[in-house]
Design a protein around this nucleic acid. Sequence first.
DNA 1: ATAAACCCTAAACTATGGTTTAGTGCAAAC
DNA 2: GTTTGCACTAAACCATAGTTTAGGGTTTAT
Lengths: 141, 141
Amino acid sequence: MLKTYSIKEVAQKFDLSISTIRYYDKRGLLPFVAKNKSGYRVFTETDLNLIKTVVCLKNTGMAIKNIQKYIQLVMQGPDSIEQRKQLLELHKQQVIQKQKLLSENLQEINFKINKYNSKNAKEVIKTELAYVLAEKKELKL
Amino acid sequence: MLKTYSIKEVAQKFDLSISTIRYYDKRGLLPFVAKNKSGYRVFTETDLNLIKTVVCLKNTGMAIKNIQKYIQLVMQGPDSIEQRKQLLELHKQQVIQKQKLLSENLQEINFKINKYNSKNAKEVIKTELAYVLAEKKELKL
DNA sequence: ATAAACCCTAAACTATGGTTTAGTGCAAAC
DNA sequence: GTTTGCACTAAACCATAGTTTAGGGTTTAT
C-alpha cells in the first residue's frame, strides 16, 4: 500500500508548523493536496516532492504570491514548462544576486571582527571616537 | 571645511528612502546623528561609516532590535569591544548558515531548470503527472 | 463509551519593517 | 518677498507572513 502522511508528519518533515502548512494551503501553494471523507488533508509521497519545491522557493526568498504562480503553472500541466522555466530562471538570478550581496557584507563583518580582534583594538577605537567628537565639535553639532 | 550630508543625500548614497532613514533613527539605529539649530539631521563623513555598518547588518538579515543593540555598544565606547565582537561573531555564523541554505536551495532550482531544459522534458512531466493521478486514484482521493 | 490526541475552518491577532499623511517650519532662487 | 524645495514630527496606515483562538468534528487507545 502507498504511504500517506498527516499534516503533523509533514510539518515535522519540513520543520514547519501545522498552521503554516494550512496557511500555505489557503494561499494556494498546495492545491494538489487531497482531503479524505472527514475533510483531513492526506499527503502522498509525490505531494512531498512538490512541497519540497515550495519550501525551496520560500527559503530562497520568493514571495508567496509568486510561489503560488509557479504552482499554478505546475497544475496546468506540461504546456506551461516554458513559463515555469522563465519564472525559475528569473528567480535564480535574484538568488545569485542575494548570494553576492551576502558575501560582500560578510566580508565587511569579518573586517570588523578582525579589527576588534587586533591587539591594539582599544587604542584604534579610542582614536576613532576622538576623531568623531572633534568632527562634530568643528561643525558645532 | 568638512563636508556634511543632508538626509536626501544619505538616502541616495545608500539606496534607502528618506522615511526609512527617519524610521531607523526612531528605532535607535542612528543615535550618533546630530541635528542643526533648525532640527535638521546633519550627517558627517564618519556618520556614513556607521550607517554603512547598519546597512550591512540589515542586508545580512539582522533584526532591527539587534542592530540597535550593536549600535548601543558602539556608543558606549571602547569598553564594549568584547561584547561587540561576540555579537558580530554570532551573527557571522548565522550569515554563514544562511549562505549554506541558499546554496543548497539554488542547486535544487538549477536541477529543476535543467529538467525543464532537457529535450524530453515534456514527456517526463507527462509521465510524472500520470503517476501522481494514479497515486491519488489508488488512494481514492 | 469515553478520554486523549488529532484534524478542521474562520477569523482575529501579532510581529516586523517600513510608507504615507497631515500639519508645519526653514532655505534659497527668482 | 514669495514661491519652490527640502526638512521636521507624530500618527495613521500598509504589506507580508504567519500564529492564535474559538468552536467543533474524528480516531484511537483503554
